[in-house]
Design a protein around this nucleic acid. Structure first.
Lengths: 194, 194
DNA sequence: CCTACCGATCGGTAGG
DNA sequence: CCTACCGATCGGTAGG
């Protein structure tokens, strides 16, 4: 797996940003982690914010592309939701550093990138809302506050980066199945009498 | 509603920390918001970190106290869970600035406060786990990965500070009911045939 | 609550 | 990729 020096800089930055936060990671920290002097970083990137920008928008792109694929397939809403959840978790777990930056550090983007980013985030949420609405129309899902449901679902998905360990025994697919089941059926035992 | 000058400093700091992040809020910003010069702040507080420390530990105390009360009452697990959820949401929504600091900025605490804080957080999660375990024993809840369930529940609760508007039409109690229902019963329509 | 000021550190540039 | 260095800003102190 070869990577250019620029990619090495970006990946190391993502790791440090996750560890210390964007504002607490200094370019001198980053340079030190790479074994070079701070001014040398600027041969590979233009500014500190470029590190943030690149990461946030690449992640947004991955999420949106994955969701578009799901929506293009002619499945029912439950299947679509399960696939969307699985994709979301796979993207998160396959790069936890990037995922942290995408989820928690985007707010330090400056304009106009901040506004652009928020548009992409909203578009992604909109994709989830469409799945829920379809499910209601198909009679599969309860009639529910859709926006509320999507925010609840995404928040429970996003939390996994706080505890997921790639070297642990749980595969992303298993996490996805457990979460799908929880979201679809809830905690309560199904009663036979209704 | 009277408040000491120190409390005024702390509340203003919480607001600015939520807005910009702990590391991006400078003591000069804070002083300016209060209409004084930066060095004057140190007549009311000892250090910048004291602002963070005070907020994080006061919130932790509120959460733990509320959960202890729920567990002292002799209800069944579903009732306990509903009450715990309602309390959690009331604490979050009654001070969104503090809640943000508690949820997202605690990681910038330095030792030994960081470790102490994590102990309190774990204790709170443990309280939720006990409710879930009780529910399983009572035959009310599915047998489930308890740690997984608690993290999922708390993450969906905590997300509300990202969108909740106190001036909006939704009361904390309504939010709590919707979330309780979602967590207990899930998204899927109950089937009559099993 | 202020003025005056400290050493440390920040992101980034010039020039090689 | 380096040395040398910039102006700006940081949290905080001394002394009143």
């Amino acid at each position: 797996m070869k990577s250019t020096r620029r990619e090495e800089v970006i990946h190391t930055a993502q790791k440090l940003i996750r560890l210390h936060g964007y504002n607490s990671m200094s370019m001198r920290d980053l340079a030190k982690a790479l074994g070079i002097e701070a001014p040398s970083l600027y041969n590979h990137i233009k500014s500190k914010e470029e590190l943030l920008k690149t990461t946030c928008f690449e992640m947004a792109d991955r999420f949106i592309t994955a969701l578009d694929e799901v929506n293009d397939i002619y499945f029912n809403a439950e299947q679509k939701l399960r696939m969307a959840i699985e994709n979301h978790i796979k993207i998160l777990t396959s790069n936890l550093d990037m995922a942290h930056v995408f989820l928690h550090e985007w707010k330090y983007l400056s304009e106009p990138y901040l506004s652009e980013f928020i548009v992409l985030r909203d578009r992604y949420e909109q994709g989830f809302r469409e799945i829920i609405v379809t499910g209601e129309q198909e009679g599969l899902f309860k009639e529910i506050d859709t926006k509320f449901a999507v925010l609840t679902i995404l928040s429970s998905l996003n939390w996994i980066i706080e505890w997921y360990k790639p070297e642990g025994s749980m595969l992303p697919q298993e996490v996805a199945e457990k979460l799908s089941h929880f979201i679809l059926s809830g905690l309560k035992k199904e009663t036979i009498y209704k």
